[in-house]
Design a protein around this nucleic acid. Structure first.
Length: 614
RNA sequence: GGUUCCGUAGCUCAGCUGGAUAGAGCAACAGAUUUCUAAUCUGUGGGUCACAGGUUCGAAUCCUGUCGGGAUCACCA
């Protein structure tokens, strides 16, 4: 609920009685008064100057006098440069805090009865997860939690690209060089083991290719196909794919394996299942470390043929058209897009076809109203096209489709490149931030007395808190420069800083001698820092709503940081347990408790845990 | 080239449904702990909000254009 509704109502009455102006509370805009002026909330008077034909000063004086006389919650008013600053009564602050604390689901919206599916992660099964996946996973997961808080029933899902030439490369290299190595026999996490063989394949291929470049055949190709003035190195860089497809021995074997897989050859299928299962075990570990889980998964090996039926339907409806060579297209030029192929001339489907089919299957499986795709912004156009096609097909969920697009993650040295070995591995990074948290905790010694398991859990929460907050506080659409050094910072605008505010609150509550909040109805002289905190708490519901409307977790992260910062200041300036009287003490403990709850809830929405001590 | 996203302090980012003198953190320097956890707090310095027009009482915010950067424009995924 809107805790300023009372003030808005008073102002509406004020406008009506003083100036004969009929408005509605929904039209009243209230800002927080800037720190340098006296007052708590501010009305901007310029809005009314024109229609009431009075100067801002005149308007403010009349309205201010009226409010002081007639509003039970306004204590004082001051007009400064066209702004009417009102100071609220102590009763207003007490009542607001009580209202917040008596609302268990403060910040959440009532159930909408609608279902939304949120897709994120979307890994390939030939490599372990990396930094880019972490951003994706954090965004998707947080978005899911935020939509839930906005009243949706949420289903999390991932698309797993478990087929294609890439996994065949890993399989082939394992077959040739693996000597039966398994995660168990080597002690290597499954996704890393499979990734190692992918790398080994690429290495072998590269050596083969380089050797070939010096053979008669290679030299002949260079002589025949080079472009004028082209360097040999550049030529062979460009020629790589052709070589892979037309000449490479090991490339040929990998392609054969893909054909065998598609034909369902038992040995190949068995190997494929085996290696993928290792990968999934590895992924699951990483997901668990990151604190996320999926309600279901869609495997490309099962969905890659879907969508053809939709193409038939679209053809019947005249939405798509077939060329003479048999390929099927859609023309979206009237919507500012272009022509897109949906079925190749040989009748096989493309990525788009599969996405159409998968969307339909998801609807069939769950009857969802909305769908969110967490995918990097390099695929903006793809989703624009996909959504337009689904809309034209008349899919019932078409209006609820959303691409949660985010900028790519780059290192200070530029984009991550696997060939240059600059890819930041997800598991390594997680281990690193936890190690950093451990070394700082050791210096501090604050949790040294706790049981080892508990310490370990806290260090995990802090390390991950640092990493996650570092990534999620940046707006999704912005491209992100990820400096590993900064990601382990635990001071300033960081996850541990917010956690620390929460920990301080828990410590206060523990020492306050019980959970009973005690009476503070006689409290008077509400401190500035207390008002600041309550004002900030009041914003929580709208922050959650807007974060949901905009698919923007960073709004919550920034809100939580500001709340934590204000609490740290309050904690520093105001005595809580040694307050001058019991009303003040009880009020401050209650306030602290509410700040703690909102911080914890905010972090929950971000997928970050709160330790009780640190 | 078309489309699209981004451009705010040395660095990383907030602020953008138009409102007061544009804010944080990091880094630098100077301080604060007999007192509730110093992963904290306070202070100092640091800005042509890329640029130019326009709309407005008022523009970092909205509109147009320019410049710079990213992404994308395959019978690839």
């Amino acid at each position: 609920m809107d805790h300023l509704i009372g003030l808005k109502e008073d102002f509406v009455r004020c406008l009506a009685e003083c100036f004969g102006l009929q408005t509605d509370t929904s039209e009243i805009l209230i800002n927080e008064t800037r720190r340098e002026f006296a007052g708590d909330f501010t009305f901007v008077l310029f809005t009314y100057v024109k229609q009431l034909k009075k100067s801002p000063a005149e308007l403010g004086t009349i309205a201010g006098d009226w409010l002081i006389k007639n509003s039970s919650i306004v204590d004082a008013c001051e007009v400064v440069q066209g702004f009417l600053n009102v100071t609220m009564s102590d009763a207003f602050w007490l009542r607001t805090l009580n209202a917040i604390s008596s609302e268990p689901s403060f910040g959440e919206s009532p159930a909408t009865g609608k279902k939304v599916m949120v897709e994120f992660a979307s890994p390939n099964t030939n490599k372990p997860l990396h930094l880019g996946h972490i951003r994706n996973i954090l965004l998707g997961w947080s978005c899911a939690r935020i939509l839930e808080a906005n009243g949706y029933q949420v289903i999390t899902t991932q698309v797993i690209n478990d087929r294609g030439i890439a996994i065949c490369k890993s399989m082939l290299a394992w077959q040739k060089f693996g000597n039966g190595a398994t995660p168990a026999s080597t002690g290597i996490k499954g996704d890393h083991l499979v990734g190692d063989y992918y790398v080994l394949f690429e290495q072998t291929f590269r050596e083969e290719y380089e050797a070939w470049q010096r053979t008669k055949e290679g030299i002949a190709v260079w002589d025949k196909s080079k472009k004028a003035g082209q360097e040999k190195e550049d030529f062979f860089k460009e020629y790589k794919n052709t070589y892979f497809n037309d000449y490479s021995r090991i490339g040929g074997e990998a392609r054969q394996m893909l054909l065998d897989w598609e034909a369902g050859k038992p040995e190949v299928t068995a190997l494929w299942k085996q290696m993928n299962s290792w990968v999934y075990e590895g992924f699951d570990q990483t997901y668990t470390h990151l604190g996320v889980h999926f309600d279901c998964a869609y495997y490309e090996s099962e969905t890659y043929l879907l969508g053809k039926k939709a193409i038939e339907k679209g053809l019947d409806q005249g939405i798509f058209y077939r060329l003479e060579d048999g390929s099927v297209w859609v023309n979206l030029e009237d919507a500012g897009m272009d022509r897109k192929i949906l079925l190749r001339s040989d009748g096989t489907s493309v990525y788009m076809t599969q996405d159409i089919g998968t969307a339909q299957k998801r609807y069939a499986d769950y009857g969802i109203d909305r769908m969110v795709y967490t995918v990097a912004d390099e695929q903006d156009y793809h989703f624009k096209v996909l959504f337009e096609i689904l809309r034209r097909l008349g899919e019932p969920y078409a209006a609820g489709l959303h691409h949660l697009s985010y900028g790519m993650v780059e290192l200070p040295t530029g984009r991550m490149k696997s060939r240059e070995g600059t890819v930041v591995d997800a598991d390594d990074l997680i281990a690193e931030v936890i190690a950093e948290a451990s070394s700082i905790a050791e210096e501090r010694g604050e949790i040294a007395a706790l049981p080892a398991a508990e310490q370990k859990n806290i260090l995990r929460q802090i390390g991950l808190g640092a990493l996650k907050f570092f990534m999620i506080r940046i707006q999704p659409r912005k491209r992100m420069i990820f400096d590993p050094k900064e990601s382990v910072d635990m001071q300033g605008q960081t996850g541990p800083y917010v956690q620390n505010a929460y920990v301080r609150i828990q410590s206060v509550i523990r020492k306050s001698g019980g959970e009973a909040t005690g009476d503070h109805s006689e409290y008077s002289g509400v401190e500035d820092m207390e008002k600041v905190l309550i004002r900030q708490l009041m914003q929580f519901p709208s922050v959650v709503r807007e974060a949901g409307d905009n698919y923007d977790p960073s709004a919550i992260a920034n809100f939580a940081y500001v709340l934590a910062r204000d609490y740290h200041r309050f904690y520093h300036d105001v005595r809580i347990l040694n307050a001058p009287d019991t009303n003040a003490r009880n009020f401050r403990i209650t306030l602290s408790g509410e700040v703690g709850k909102v911080l914890k809830k905010s972090f929950y929405l971000l997928g970050i845990e709160m330790p009780d001590r640190m």
